[in-house]
Design a binder for these strands. Sequence first.
RNA 1: CGGGCUAUGGCGCAGUCUGGUAGCGCGUCCGUCUGGGGGACGGAAGGUCGUAGGUUCAAGUCCUGCUAGCCCGACCA
Length: 446
Amino acid sequence: MRLSRYFLPVLKETPSEASIVSHRLMLRAGMIKQEQAGIYSWLPLGFKVLQRLQQIVHEEQQRAGHIPLLMPTLQPAELWKESGRYDAYGAEMLRIKDRHDRDMLYGPTNEEMITDIFRQNIASYRDLPLTLYHIQWKFRDEIRPRFGVMRGREFLMKDGYNFDIDMDAALHAYNRHLVTYLRTYERMGLQAIPMRADGGPIGGDYTHEFLVLADTGESEVFYDSEITDLKFGDREIDFDSVDECRAVLEEFTSRYARTDETHDEALFNEIPEERRRTARGIEVGQIFYFGTKYSEAMGATVQNAAGENVPVHMGSHGIGVSRLLGAIIEASHDDKGIIWPEGVTPFHAGIVNLRQGDAEADAACEGLYKALRAKGLDPLYDDRDERAGAKFATMDLIGLPWRITVGPRGLKNGVVELTSRKTGESTEMAPEAAVEEIAKIYAGVL
RNA sequence: CGGGCUAUGGCGCAGUCUGGUAGCGCGUCCGUCUGGGGGACGGAAGGUCGUAGGUUCAAGUCCUGCUAGCCCGACCA
């Protein structure tokens, strides 16, 4: 993309509506525009990252054999009356009437609807196991939305639902989801720690929340420092293997890690003192096993091998996709702006032309732009007639991980400059070498 | 939902106390000079002062209602 033709309304000053750093930077970088409290338009740069996050979530879910579908945002009240949650959910649920005076709601989650889809179409244990998921907008009418997209009322969420014949099979689905989530967050450049959680309104005895450590997190967390050394990495795993998935769960949940909701001071104190940590965290996902809670209430049964009708065992699993943008920025920024991890960056590299209009500089930039695109990369070329300082400031603000700086001074010696946003380190090299270098960096990421 | 605060050009703010017909910085547009970290000079566009009503010769300013947004708390992915 050429910046002169893009839509990137960056701001020098911070709008007064924003208090925390991710919200400020998203507004300044022209990623979002607030429309109402907790409701945002996603401008091109923000939308691009949002799509990238969705892509990662899709890839990791499908890698584990989970099947995508799409359910509507508006749901009929009947389903929720059936489960009993129409009354239980309270004012957080946005209720609407259509022209025929029918009760509807903007879905805050989809357990009822997916259970309805399941029960109308699946009757035999032979069709299990089954895990369906979607990425869809949700609405929860928070009393007090805040922190930008981290706590909006409208938010994009991946929610998945597993259907299994019994508890053991459903717990395998639970473990499998834990593995997919570990992979997903790592690809996004995040360390998200699974912590024992509280069931809340969705219910369930087995549940973990995934938390990203950040000072602005809404939850207080307590953990054994050893847990932060764990990495899933690029290990191969057979998602059908009960033992392999369980081993991962055990590895990542055996050390103490809890939020204030489930914190146990006595257990915590058994950890050697030098490893005890108290911090704040942002919740970016949660997995639940809740058994037959919805299948019993809504008659979602299958015939087992003995010919008996039994309610299916279910779990649900969520990732707060839109919230993740805020979480990633909270975890990765400096005083100049955002620092995108390579896995989620909106553009792979920025090209800064220091002397727009100079024939040599223009030609070199065009060459770099085309060469990067030919490698399947997506560069942002700042071809505006701006001074160097303004271009650098914009690049730093929007946080592309790599910048190629092109100017007459370097071109005289046949070199451009490749700079890491994260470390600030610059290396001079021939333009072709810079292209190769960037291609190499992203070879392991794309 | 309790407590606090705000609303004036695209963004950040002053002007309100003490009423007299709206100003500054940034950004935007045009031109010239510039050119390796938000440059300089000259010119220009852009505002029903959140909204409804009231007081007054006169309201951005005083009074009342309403709406929207922000912060702290309780609540929440």
